[in-house]
Design a protein around this nucleic acid. Sequence first.
DNA 1: CATGATATTAGTATAATACTAAAATATATA
DNA 2: TATATATTTTAGTATTATACTAATATCATG
Lengths: 132, 132
Amino acid sequence: MEYSITRKERDCIVALRENSGFPVRLFNIAELLDIKAPTAFELIKRLESKNIIKKTNGVISLTPYGNSIYSEIIMAHRTLELILTRSGVNSDKACQQIEKIDYLMDDTSVQKLFKSLGQPQTCPHGKPIKLN
Amino acid sequence: MEYSITRKERDCIVALRENSGFPVRLFNIAELLDIKAPTAFELIKRLESKNIIKKTNGVISLTPYGNSIYSEIIMAHRTLELILTRSGVNSDKACQQIEKIDYLMDDTSVQKLFKSLGQPQTCPHGKPIKLN
DNA sequence: CATGATATTAGTATAATACTAAAATATATA
DNA sequence: TATATATTTTAGTATTATACTAATATCATG
């Protein structure tokens, strides 16, 4: 898929998808990411120009491209998380650690990693690893 | 050890240590990192102010603190590299992939990872994993 | 001491992050 | 509908990391 995003962009993508239970607006993102509205505005503008999110009547959502990026991030996240927790790293710690790097991983490598783990169905929290 | 560095700082630390066969000066770093002298100058200034490197008559070297950071980076690098290559990722690819994240890893997690791999003596390239 | 090598300063630029204050726009309610 | 409230956007500023060119300074050596 070949994407290149920043840490805050990653957090925004994840927040959007993990709060899809309600219509997410700019001020929600500001709250969720703990930043002020103008900062959120900038971030959103950047993600829009990259075609990762779109705004419809002020409601922000991931584009198909954005969703595919989310899937890769979360696949990387859970795969790595599993490796760390299996090694004895506490799961909160693992999560904290992994969110610093999950969006930097190459998908091909993650896929191989995933296969070598025996294609587990769930991560340590019980959430499905494979999405889409 | 708790360090926080940037990607270019990481590259500089690694380059310094991996070219310790000769006295490394500013212009060597510029060459090694493929940046112009003034950019190298800035980078070096920053690393000096963080107490990671020191300059003695124009010759740049890692401080003890810098060396300890290098050890953690390389420990993380080789451990992760081993995990990737064992999963079937080509070793050049693995290296490329891992240098994007090795300096972001928490040492405690890396230690656990390392132990769970059976404390291997060498990485895929045959270099020792444990330093110091 | 002059020349060439090396380092430094000055000035500029960009991207990502972040803020405050103010203005504009939308929405809701009296 | 008018006003109040909520939300978004603009304008202006700041910081950190990265990077450059051009110019100047410093150092070492022949």
